[in-house]
């Protein structure tokens, strides 16, 4: 195995993603109609459809963080290929698990989960390109707020609040673009100081 992957505790990273996938499945498998109207309708779909994929995305970002920043910043070896492969392994597994979890309940469109994962991963990768991963985790409550706000927002606002729980062509495109931008930034930039 390449020293790049040895430095990253691949088995621990994969284990973390698998555990989060199982938690997502457990949350999503709660039947929404069984919950009382107020919080059943508002919180559970938002948590299982939007928030859990974002949490998995931010976790993936934390796992993608460099364990030896100075060494990698002053490396003479180009690491873009390794970074791409590692991101593909971690995020690919997460997408597979989330899509698997999304098949459990009846109400879930699969696209939505992958969309929020892309947005969460992309945004947190962009944040960690300049700031510490703690700031990336602030994305979780922020995202929860935006999701819950858009849940009952007027139709006119939904295309603007692209992170909402309703998938639209516009929101899917923006979230995927954010994901791609985040991964591209991670792959091409050296680890932050």
């Amino acid at each position: 195995m390449s020293p790049y992957f040895r430095a990253r505790q691949l088995s621990r990273a994969l284990g973390t993603v698998v555990v989060l996938g199982l938690v997502t499945a457990a949350v999503g498998s709660r039947r929404i109609p069984a919950l009382p109207p107020g919080f059943g309708q508002e919180y559970v779909p938002v948590i299982s459809l939007a928030l859990m994929p974002v949490i998995v995305g931010v976790t993936c970002t934390t796992l993608l963080e460099s364990p030896a920043r100075t060494l990698e910043r002053t490396s003479c070896r180009g690491l873009a290929a390794h970074r791409s492969l590692y991101a593909l392994i971690i995020c690919g597994l997460a997408i597979m698990l989330l899509l698997g979890a999304a098949t459990l309940p009846e109400e879930k469109p699969y696209l939505l989960v992958a969309t929020h994962f892309a947005a969460g991963t992309g945004l947190s990768l962009l944040i960690t390109a300049w700031l510490s991963d703690t700031f990336a985790w602030l994305l979780v409550p922020t995202y929860a707020l935006l999701s819950l706000m858009v849940w009952q927002a007027a139709d006119a606002w939904r295309p603007i609040l692209v992170f909402g729980p309703y998938p639209t062509q516009w929101s899917v495109a923006v979230c995927c673009a954010l994901g791609a931008l985040g991964v591209a930034t991670h792959v091409t930039r050296r680890p932050r100081e």
Binding site: S2, P3, Y4, R6, A7, Q9, P67, A68, R69, T70, L71, E72, T74, S75, C76, R77
Partner: peptide
């Protein structure tokens, strides 16, 4: 061709001493 010791070197705590130096060697080609 440049070796650098930082003022506050941060090493990955989970790696063994040999693994860290091997990683540095790999990064330096």
């Amino acid at each position: 061709g440049i070796g650098y010791l930082a003022q506050d070197p941060v090493l990955p705590g989970h790696m063994s001493v040999r693994d860290v130096v091997e990683y540095a060697a790999w990064l330096k080609g």
